[in-house]
């Protein structure tokens, strides 16, 4: 038993220590920042020397304030952006899941000697640069591209108005799905790969058709993979800003863009931190929910 406890700490301590030092400690700085007054010239001036007099009239305790949070709740605008971002993240996650499942399943069912190659083919595009991939999509979706002409000819044939695909929410969705697809395929594959084909054979013997076999046997067993893949897509998408910046139209603003604006354009670090902290709180609640859902069920 003693040995067991020793192993337990040998395995748990290194990641805990690393994350406590290099994640929790720096984050604490930002949590505190969100309760400080913003500096007149931006940056973190308030952390070093609180310039409370610049915001005279506001009540404060030891130079701390809820001002940034109050500002957030003073306007429905910010809540709207949160909702919008969640909608975009949920849509991309769903599309990723639908696209990733057949790939992961095919790889898991293929002969062992081909699996490596097929996984490699999924990851390979991502060894190129992020920006170059997004710019490649700009070329594909651009109004003079062959693809764009094809789509618009089709639309016109059926009597619809031609559309501009680049600089639109559609382009943002394409870019987002493209960039995050491997983060769905890989967890799904690692889950599906361990499934025992015996169960499927048994189901077949019991007269289940292909569809039933999928929904009754494969799908429930793959749920941990589905949830972890969804988390790895959903969460990063919430905080992204580069894709809407490059591919998006005039209305594509997400929380990520808003937060970036606070740290750069507006130089309002307290508000930027407050926004981030609220985002993280919401995300942690959602993942908490996911974890509950992902509890392994007794296989039937």
């Amino acid at each position: 038993m003693n040995k067991f406890r020793l192993t337990r700490w040998l395995i748990s301590l290194p990641p805990i220590l690393f994350l406590l030092i290099f994640f929790a400690a720096p984050s604490l700085i930002m949590v505190i920042t969100s309760f400080r007054f913003p500096g007149e010239y931006g940056g973190l001036a308030p952390l070093v020397a609180p310039e409370t007099d610049t915001m005279a009239g506001d009540s404060s305790l030891y130079g701390l304030t809820l001002e940034a949070y109050r500002f957030f709740f003073s306007d429905i605008l910010y809540a709207e952006i949160f909702l919008k971002s969640f909608a975009v993240a949920a849509t991309s996650t769903l599309i990723c899941l639908i696209m990733a499942y057949p790939v992961a399943m095919l790889i898991a069912q293929s002969a062992k000697k081909y699996r490596n190659l097929m996984i490699l083919l999924v990851v390979l595009p991502f060894a190129s640069n992020f920006l170059i991939r997004i710019y490649a999509w700009m070329i594909i979706l651009g109004p003079e591209s062959a693809f764009s002409h094809f789509i618009n000819n089709m639309l016109q044939f059926f009597g619809f108005e031609p559309v501009m695909m680049l600089f639109s929410s559609f382009a943002v969705l394409v870019g987002t799905v493209y960039v995050h697809l491997p983060f769905m395929i890989l967890p799904l594959y690692t889950n599906l790969e361990k499934h025992d084909p015996v169960l499927l054979d048994a189901a077949q013997d019991l007269g289940a058709n292909r569809w039933q076999r999928f929904w009754r046997v494969t799908w429930p067993q793959s749920l941990p993979g589905v949830f972890s893949g969804s988390a790895l897509v959903f969460i990063p998408v919430l905080g992204m800003f580069a894709i809407p910046d490059i591919l998006g139209g005039t209305g594509d603003i997400l929380i990520g863009n808003l937060i970036k604006d606070q740290f750069l354009g507006t130089r309002d670090w307290p508000f930027g931190s407050a926004l981030s902290i609220m985002l993280m709180l919401v995300v942690l609640c959602v993942t908490g929910l996911f974890t509950l859902l992902a509890r392994p069920r007794a296989p039937k």
């Binding site: 790895l232 969460i235 990063p236 800003f241 990520g256 993280m280 942690l284 993942t287």
Partner: peptide
């Protein structure tokens, strides 16, 4: 500790 860094906006 594991989830939070993924949820944290990059710039922060």
């Amino acid at each position: 500790l594991v989830f939070a860094p993924i949820a944290m906006p990059e710039i922060l």
